[in-house]
Design a protein around this nucleic acid. Structure first.
Lengths: 209, 209
DNA sequence: CTCTGTGAATGAGTTCACAGCA
DNA sequence: TGCTGTGAACTCATTCACAGAG
């Protein structure tokens, strides 16, 4: 793996490649060319080859890529060939949905602790996990192997949740709350915002005369 | 509004501006400069001015932008200053969560119909909405004013869901399923993939030596 | 001969720097 | 004077085109 700085867009596409390759594997496809994979992902073939080239040489010239092997290689490159321990902060509607959503564990992100500051929620069991006071977060980071924070609080409490996570030594946050947060630069934040996708669709429909 | 082709990235940022401006409005801020807004959004001030310039001149030189007015202007530019009727296909875990999630209606996306092909789910009432057979989708598009489709099926059924939506005359789709879909080019598809954000965080943590 | 891997060319998006208006 | 709006400069990403491996 080269120590160039890899475009954020490449990382996003690698996730798409994994998704499509997984579908192909399910359908019994064993080998695929960059051209066919590109069509399935709606991107340019060179794009795929260039994206993969950041991490190594995974293909066989004259043949293509071995599907199963390529999935493993991409997952390894992204660092998602292992399980990551996650802490969820904010047990509201969305938080509960995520706790129940099995897809995360399936993809290597295991939610191991749920926090909330509401005394009525503390002690409640959601999807087999006891809701704990957010103040106790720091003390549980090592014990539970918490590495990634998930914020699902109302917007006005997102910053406080982030502070608790940062204070606990968490280095990566996925923020579902409708608010931007400020964190030290060594902490990575990814914002999940469904709204944007809806706006995008609305805009496209509207501007299609 | 100019008929240039507006970068997708701009649309995404406009959604962020709305989010941040809404927070500022809540805090009683009435006027803001591009510099301060930029800091709150973690972008460059010129970026904001350029993004807005695609749609018009919303600022006052020497002063800045009026928060409330700017929110309205951006919403109008995106076409989200009205209510959009949505059809949800796939009443599984995620589908149910979205049906119960009030945030969508709040932002102008009103889910007015829920479809599924599973006979056990048909007839069930979820969040006040009766689950209907997907075959009946086409017949309800006009009646319910359905404009945007939401796919929340398992990956292997996403394409079929898309086909029903396209056949019903839907012009925009937000796809939460873990699969790419093929649609005619006049139909807009937005892919929502939490996984990618988690991968991104994992990658950033991993590659931070 | 096929399809990957990659430097070179192109194109898109971001930032700069300043003109222009309040 | 202060901050917006915008052409010009620059940076980054995508696509092309072909050398090179199997």
């Amino acid at each position: 793996m080269k120590t160039q700085n890899i475009p954020k867009a490449t990382i996003k596409r690698l996730a798409v490649y994994i998704q499509v390759l997984s579908g192909l594997k399910r359908d019994g496809v064993e080998v695929i060319s960059s051209e066919k994979l590109a069509r399935a992902c709606s991107v340019n073939p060179s794009q795929i080859r260039k994206d993969l080239a950041y991490f190594g040489e995974f293909g066989v010239r004259g043949v293509g890529y071995y599907v199963h092997e390529l999935i493993s290689s991409i997952k390894h490159s992204l660092g998602v060939d292992r399980v990551w321990g996650c802490a969820l902060v904010g047990v509201g509607n969305l938080g509960r949905a995520l706790l129940r959503h099995k897809e995360f564990a399936l993809r290597g992100f295991s939610i191991r602790a749920a926090f909330d500051c509401d005394p009525y929620k503390i002690g409640e069991i959601v999807s087999g996990l006891e809701v704990v006071c957010t103040r106790q977060l720091k003390g549980r980071v090592d014990e539970f192997g918490l590495e990634v924070g998930i914020i699902t609080t109302p917007p006005e409490r997102a910053q406080r949740a982030a502070n608790y996570l940062v204070d606990g030594g968490i280095k990566g946050i996925v923020n579902f709350a409708q608010a931007r947060i400020q964190v030290p630069k060594e902490v990575t934040v990814e914002y999940v915002d469904f709204t944007h996708h809806f706006y995008s669709v609305a805009f496209n429909i509207s501007s299609a005369d």
